[in-house]
Design a protein around this nucleic acid. Structure first.
Ligand SMILES: [Mn+2]
Ligand SMILES: [Mn+2]
Ligand SMILES: [Mn+2]
Ligand SMILES: [Mn+2]
Lengths: 158, 158
DNA sequence: GGAAAAATTTAGCCGAGGCTACATTCCTGT
DNA sequence: ACAGGAATGTAGCCTCGGCTAAATTTTTCC
């Protein structure tokens, strides 16, 4: 067992990350919707999050309080500079995490699903390690070329 | 962007895992305390979680409601069969996640810290992939830092 | 044996993040 | 042009997981 203070610090870090996970997912999603549709509507956020629209609105109200999003009544959502910055960082980290999971052999769909939760707990140091690992394994490769194979059918994906 | 229903499912999975993360960490911790001290006290759980003792008590009440823990008033905590089973699985998965992070190059302390949050989002399929990856790399990887952790240490923590 | 200390439990308070029900405002199709 | 439907907003409820303060029980130690 780790020393008690070190362990408490780790648990505290995980708790803090849990509280920012929603912010990160929302700004990332809003940025994606904006890029894809030219606008980001609360109803779209709710549908893609899989929550009711009052829940999405309440969470968006929190994003506004934290200065990540602006919105005028009955209009779409807009990211502030801080929101865009956070969205870009979240999106880049998200992609690295997915790529790493696939690189070590996770099935693609499991990688996509697990990354959605894992990403929020990846520190800068670990993210750097992931990038280095990917750079070594896949030198300047871009498209899909699944050579390393672990492909098996598992309907049980949780 | 992924299809809306698929994305909603991933977010929903992450939300569900967030709600079981606390259960897993608590039973794992209680099992470790029991193994190390011969008993698990609520005060120890609180200190190692880095929360106040009423908070720990309230969460332990939830563990009891969910049939993972039993406790007699003013006495220590005991895992039920279900609790022990969950603790064993959580501990095993935790170790695999830490080992994998280190294997891909994360600094040891970052790996230990990040794993505390990440572990709860690792699906069975991904865990299997981690184990395969480690099994392939373990025999060859022998250059630094003797990592083979013996089972338990008894570092008198009270 | 009894007082002091420590551990445990109870009783609130709070914010985050879910939900339903209902009200309001836009927008679209006829 | 306007009626109906979709989107948006408000109100109120819930659980979870933090906290402090205070009461109770157990343990320790003189
Ligand atoms: Mn993401
Ligand atoms: Mn996410
Ligand atoms: Mn753990
Ligand atoms: Mn954990």
């Amino acid at each position: 067992m780790p020393e008690a203070p070190a362990q408490a610090e780790r648990f505290g870090k995980a708790r803090a990350e849990r509280s920012t996970a929603l912010l990160e997912d929302y700004v990332e999603l809003i940025a994606d919707l904006f890029a894809a549709n030219g606008e980001a509507r609360a109803a779209d956020v709710a549908r893609r999050q899989g929550v009711t629209h009052p829940t999405a609105l309440k969470n968006i109200a929190r994003l506004r309080r934290e200065g990540l999003v602006t919105a005028r009544p009955y209009r779409g959502l807009f990211l502030t500079d801080a929101g865009r910055k956070l969205a870009d960082a979240a999106r880049a980290r998200h992609r690295v995490v997915v790529d790493l999971l696939i690189a070590v052999g996770a099935p693609r769909e499991a990688a996509e699903a697990d990354a959605e939760g894992m990403e929020h707990h990846v520190s800068k140091a670990t993210l750097k390690a992931f990038e280095r690992f990917l750079a070594e394994r896949r030198p300047a490769d871009r498209d899909e070329a699944p050579q390393r194979q672990a492909d098996e059918d598992e309907s049980k994906t949780s």
